[in-house]
């Protein structure tokens, strides 16, 4: 049994806390958040204690794992603090906003002899796992081109931190990174990147990104991400090989469509799509991470993978700014 402290009681902190609640191998003992009300509410819900500062939580509680769910620009500070206290670290993606920060995080964890696990959850979504598996099996033969889509409405969060590039790293670093990681997992290393986005051209909240990736294997991938939709969230991909095509569209793979009547008390009617699973991919991911901490097994996604995904994001951002392709690897002509 591992005791966990979750740092950051926002959207992701809540999802992680709920996942620990359902686990037999881990227990949520504390929640750290600078907001008293939000932190206390989450801690109370799961019978944990709220602290304003991580150092107090580490002093008062018997903790083996620190799970970092604060906004991305704060990842490094908490990861370093946890590692120095000899706690294993689980940290939300993206690992950090710069390669320098990411390197520093990996180094301190190595030096202190603790593990660093980054929540690239897409590898735990059954539809992405299935597609990865089908590609490995050669179900569609050698792959030529791939297209992915991910996005929806601009995320509402504490202090509107997603809106500032130096806190979230922009749409490309925050959201497209999911697909960069999935694609790298499935098709290997990326040789070059070319990208266009609305970053710095328009209001941040309307960001939309189009990214071209060329893999060392020759695969050509197009990654589209958006925060420009008025509502909702959806994902899609298409993997085209010489022997067939694999398609996914989350809005078509939705099992339940509910339309609720506006009530007499004045609430408006709502349409609610749902695609329920017994275990959410976040739960599967965190159970896997906890299992890896207990057994010492290598996780399905490593900190090095997270670092490589960040490098692709940074290359895409560089390309957006320069209008030039960015070469990550030699080899492909």
């Amino acid at each position: 049994m591992l005791n966990v402290v979750v740092v950051g009681a926002g959207t992701m902190g809540t999802v992680h806390a709920e996942a620990y609640q359902r686990m037999t191998q881990a227990r949520l003992v504390a929640v750290v958040d600078i907001r008293e009300d939000v932190g206390t509410a989450l801690a109370d819900r799961y019978g944990a204690r709220h602290y304003l500062r991580l150092e107090d939580a580490l002093l008062q509680e018997d903790v083996q794992v620190v799970d970092v769910c604060v906004p991305t620009y704060l990842h490094r500070g908490y990861v370093e603090q946890a590692a120095r206290a000899k706690k294993h670290v689980i940290c939300e993606k993206p690992i950090a906003l710069t390669a320098e920060d990411a390197n520093a995080m990996m180094e301190v964890c190595a030096r202190e002899g603790v593990r660093l696990l980054i929540g690239h959850v897409v590898r735990f979504f059954p539809e992405y796992q299935r597609a990865h598996h089908l590609v490995q099996l050669g179900a569609v033969g050698p792959v030529g081109t791939v297209r992915t889509f991910r996005g929806g409405a601009f995320p509402i969060a504490w202090n509107d931190w997603y809106a500032s590039a130096d806190k979230s790293g922009t749409l490309i670093t925050d959201l497209c990174i999911h697909d960069f990681d999935f694609l790298r997992w499935t098709f290997g290393e990326v040789a070059r990147v070319y990208a266009k986005s609305l970053w710095k051209q328009a209001f941040n909240r309307m960001d939309h990104a189009l990214v071209s990736l060329r893999f060392s294997s020759g695969v050509i991938a197009h990654v589209e991400g958006t925060w420009a939709a008025p509502s909702g969230f959806r994902t899609a991909f298409e993997i085209a090989g010489t022997g067939g095509i694999i398609q996914h569209a989350s809005d078509e793979a939705t099992s339940i469509h509910t339309d609720l009547r506006a009530s007499e008390s004045g609430t408006t009617g709502v349409a609610v799509p749902e695609s329920p699973l017994v275990k959410s991919p976040y739960q599967v991911e965190l159970e896997h991470f906890i299992d890896c901490l207990i057994t010492g097994h290598t996780p399905l996604v490593t900190a090095e993978d997270a670092y490589e995904a960040l490098r692709i994001s940074l290359a895409a951002l560089q390309s957006v700014q320069t209008g030039e392709p960015v070469f990550l690897r030699e080899g492909l002509q």
């Binding site: 095509i245 694999i246 509910t258």
Partner: peptide, 19 residues
């Protein structure tokens, strides 16, 4: 108070297989 549609097997990929 509302209408719902449920499809037990909507959660799928579509695979076009030349093989």
């Amino acid at each position: 108070q509302g209408v719902t549609r449920v499809d037990a097997f909507a959660q799928h990929l579509t695979v076009y297989s030349d093989l």
